[in-house]
Design a protein around this nucleic acid. Structure first.
Lengths: 219, 219
DNA sequence: CCAAAAGTGTTAGTGATACACCCATGT
DNA sequence: ACATGGGTGTATCACTAACACTTTTGG
């Protein structure tokens, strides 16, 4: 192979969203090595020699959050010259969604403990991770309205109001209750349980769940 | 940087579509070196050391077709183990559209002359280029209905019927004439010239053109 | 006057949006 | 009885899809 090996590094980054404290949050680690020591960055790391890209993303994610068996969506790569001062680094970002209760965050070797940050109040970020996040957020919103991925955010059983809150948090806008419920009903992703949620001084809410927890596109 | 350099190769591939002989065609080169000697493949090549990804795609494209200043859209990277027997190769494919009359195809060093192939009748392809093409075609169709990219396929002046034919060819389905024209009118991308096209024994057609030849998203 | 493609409007259906009241419960 | 969130239906609007006839030209 004429040409250009031993010049490139290939990494995967995970853009992990969750909903916590009624806010859309993203998982960031604080870098403890240069470059960008002390800055926040997306969790990620090098792709190993005999490892597929998605497997690498899954591995990194499991190392840092303990979560596995998750739906990941590949985003477009970032690889311009100068995005990493150490050399030529191409990164393939993956979008991941998790339910906040599922996880316990871990520290890793070149990162401090991973922490959740509100998407609307992010710290200074290392590399071009701000652009990657912007792209991922666009993608997340698109998917939310064109698939059943919201199941990734939700617990086993939830009320329709809780689901609507999740949508509103992600889209960052209010939705009409009746239209939302109508839409969910006709999409047919949900099943309703006999149980109800009794809590507070008001009418108890019907519990719902996703029929199958696999990615399904609308259309 | 602890870790994994000198194991990766990074390439860009161009998925170039055009309309020729009333068919949607894609540009392929016939490989004259191993691996996959004699198979067809997407034009592409290695990203140079100090070269941005999109610049690399533009350079490859210009080398093989002579076309420049073209809108390119980055697609998701392919980089699984084993996709190239020579080593670990990550490729970033770019979608490109050109008007068939604009180009003269060139031969390159490790490829024979580039040729157009009907999208619905492709030969055996090298690597995982069949999957890349599938993805690119999906993206092309999406963009066609959500932007003004069709301008890339069209000459300076054209009739609405010609434009409709282009849409039909790409989408591989028939469209209603009145609805199509109404849609084009209200999108407002087009301008109409005073001139008409006189050709054949029938009413002459009004000529149209794109107001500005820059990518514009609908919405 | 015939053939061939250009050009043009209306109707019906479907999905999105906007909107207001009654229900079941705990206190 | 009241406060709280749960639950429901209808009218309007915008967009899409279906559909047929007249016009202009060359031969």
């Amino acid at each position: 192979m004429q040409s250009n090996a031993d010049k490139y590094f290939v990494t995967v980054d995970a853009v992990v969203f969750t909903i916590l404290d009624k806010q859309l949050k993203i998982l960031l680690i604080k870098r403890k090595n240069d470059p960008f020591r002390g800055s926040y960055a997306l969790p990620g790391g090098f792709v190993e020699e005999k490892e597929n890209l998605e497997d690498a993303a899954k591995r990194e994610l499991e190392e840092e959050t303990g979560v596995k068996n998750i739906y990941l969506k590949k985003l477009v790569a970032f690889g311009n010259v100068g995005r990493d001062p150490r050399g030529r680094v191409i990164t393939i970002p993956y979008l991941a969604l998790i339910a906040a209760d599922d996880i316990k965050l871990h520290a890793t070797t070149d990162a401090e403990l991973a922490k959740w940050h509100s998407v609307y109040d992010l710290p200074k970020l290392a590399f071009d991770h701000d652009k990657i996040i912007e792209e991922a957020l666009r993608e997340l919103r698109f998917e939310l309205e064109h698939s059943n991925i919201a199941y990734q955010f939700m617990p086993e059983k939830f009320t329709l109001t809780e689901l609507q809150k999740a949508y509103e948090t992600i889209l960052n806008k209010g939705l009409d209750k009746r239209n939302f419920r109508k839409k969910m009903k006709e999409l047919g992703f949900l099943t309703s349980y006999r149980e109800r949620k009794m809590e507070g001084a008001h009418r108890p809410a019907q519990l719902h769940g996703y029929k199958d927890k696999r990615y399904r596109r609308i259309g």
